[in-house]
Design a protein around this nucleic acid. Structure first.
Lengths: 181, 181
DNA sequence: GAGAGCATGTAATAGGTTACATGATTAC
DNA sequence: GTAATCATGTAACCTATTACATGCTCTC
């Protein structure tokens, strides 16, 4: 089966959830997948064009009165099969995540302890903000009525973000110790 | 002060450690920074050309007998200042790390529990392998004699990797629970 | 009438990977 | 002689971001 890039699969996936337009895809990702996925219009519209060319989707142009014209996309059987195949294939490898703070720390021998501490504290603060953001999203989605099953999956991904962010925060604490003494 | 990309700062940093050639830079990154940074020759050689053009570095071509010809790079005062300035500037923001497993899980409502479990188990296995790799690197650098201070910084970055990877492994366990029942 | 939101799209640029090309030396 | 290692480099390609351009509708 022909391979596509991650962006293409993400868009195919979102088309299975009822989102129909490029604009709505952007909104859904920004609102629900924001902590582990992002996308720009510069990817969305060319990819929508691509999946139609590849016959993974068909497009219907709607001009309702009182609304701006819009293109609605629907998966074809081929599109559904390609998506399902991707869903069932394990990822090839965990990507190496470039970390600029670790890079700076790696060169720490050549800088002052004070500066290293400042970098760690700044990083930790940004991590704490991110953690609090996750908590707020969690509060919001558990207090607002949603489809129960959707919420469950949403919470899994949030839990991942919280756990990993928390581990990084704890590392900051432990590492700061070495530069305070 | 003029801005450069991360790759440029990484290379400036490595030139402060005594690495001198493009080949040696590649080796150092592959061996020591591999868990949070990677680079290809397609980035290294054009960047080395750039830093010479920008007068951040000078280059000396050596042809020793018995050795292939090589270009050695040395930071200029300007190069050292640019690097120091980068070291002292906090990162702008923590980047969003795309996570393909979370993306698949997000669409989990539309697939079988069995498949979700398989994806989680495969991911966990890859994480465990990564964790063990970190442990092995740790053993190796603590048992081989190195400059003590260098080792300390090296261990900090490894500790980060271990903590974050471990948090992800634990998340896999917790999440798998929901699909086993 | 101004601003927010809905809606679509492209071009320039940046950043990075992969494959390819070349050639010397060293160890077996 | 042949495989591994040292060493340098480029071209094609892929992915993604940013800025820009357009125009409609709805609310205040």
């Amino acid at each position: 089966m022909k391979k596509y890039n991650h962006t293409t699969y993400a868009i195919l996936g979102i088309l299975t959830t009822g989102c129909r337009t490029g604009y709505a895809i952007k909104q859904l990702i920004d609102q629900s997948l924001n902590h582990f996925w992002k996308i720009s219009y510069g990817q969305i519209y060319p990819t929508l064009k691509l999946i139609v060319e590849e016959e993974l989707s068909i497009v219907q142009t709607l001009s309702e009165r009182g609304k701006p014209e819009r293109n609605e996309y629907f998966l074809t059987d081929k599109g559904k099969a390609v998506f399902k195949n991707w869903l069932e294939t394990p990822i090839e490898q965990i990507p190496v995540e470039r970390n600029e703070v670790l890079l700076k720390l790696f060169f720490g021998r050549h800088q002052s302890k004070e500066n290293t501490l400042l970098q760690l504290e700044d990083y930790q603060q940004k991590l704490v903000e991110r953690y609090q953001l996750y908590q707020n999203i969690e509060k919001m989605i558990t207090s607002t009525p949603h489809n129960t099953e959707d919420v469950t999956y949403w919470l899994f991904t949030l839990d991942y973000g919280k756990r990993v962010t928390n581990a990084a925060i704890e590392w900051c604490d432990a590492t700061k110790e070495h530069f305070i003494k």
